[in-house]
Structure formats: C-alpha cells, structure tokens
C-alpha cells in the first residue's frame, strides 16, 4: 500500500482543534514529548514499513520544499 496523501480525515477542523487541545497548557518540552509519543503510536498503527519510510521522506522534504 502506498502512502495516502489525499484528504482522509472526516471533520478535519474538529481533529485539528482536538490536536491543539491536547497541547493546551504544556511547556515546549512537554509538547515535543507529546508529539514524539503520538508519532510512535500512529506509526505502530500504520505498521507498514514501506509506508512509514515514504512518510518520513515526505515530511523531510515538505519542510524544505
């Protein structure tokens, strides 16, 4: 299965609000740690090594265009 980069989240605004709510009141360090945990949880859920590699590559280039 290839990495899905098409819209795939129902209620995107609701999801985004919930994501930021999870960070509400956290220090920068705590936010970084929360993000790390979240990435690991989601990565495990995806499970597919090839998809994870592709996602890493997209994230890396997305930053620098």
């Amino acid at each position: 299965m290839a990495l899905n980069t098409s819209p795939n989240i129902p209620d995107p605004d609701g999801f985004y609000a919930e994501l930021l709510e999870a960070h509400g009141g956290l220090s920068d360090d705590d936010s970084i740690a929360l993000n790390a945990r979240l990435i690991l949880i989601l990565a495990n859920h995806i499970g597919d090594r090839a998809v994870l590699s592709e996602a890493l590559a997209v994230a890396a280039t997305g930053e620098t265009r």
Binding site: N4, S6, N8, Y16, L20, H23, L26, D28, S31, V58
Partner: peptide
C-alpha cells in the same frame, strides 16, 4: 496562541502546497 500551535499551523501550510491532504486543514 502558542509556539506549538504556530509550529503545527506552519507545518499544515508547508504541506498544503504539495499534498492535498493538508488543504482541508488550512483555515
């Protein structure tokens, strides 16, 4: 309203230019 929400906001904008999935998140 915070550093982390700014980071997420700009990540959405960076990704939205190239990947359709991020566009519904641009608000």
């Amino acid at each position: 309203k915070s550093k982390i929400s700014h980071v997420f906001r700009n990540a959405v904008l960076d990704l939205a230019q190239y990947h359709t999935f991020a566009r519904p998140l641009v608000n």
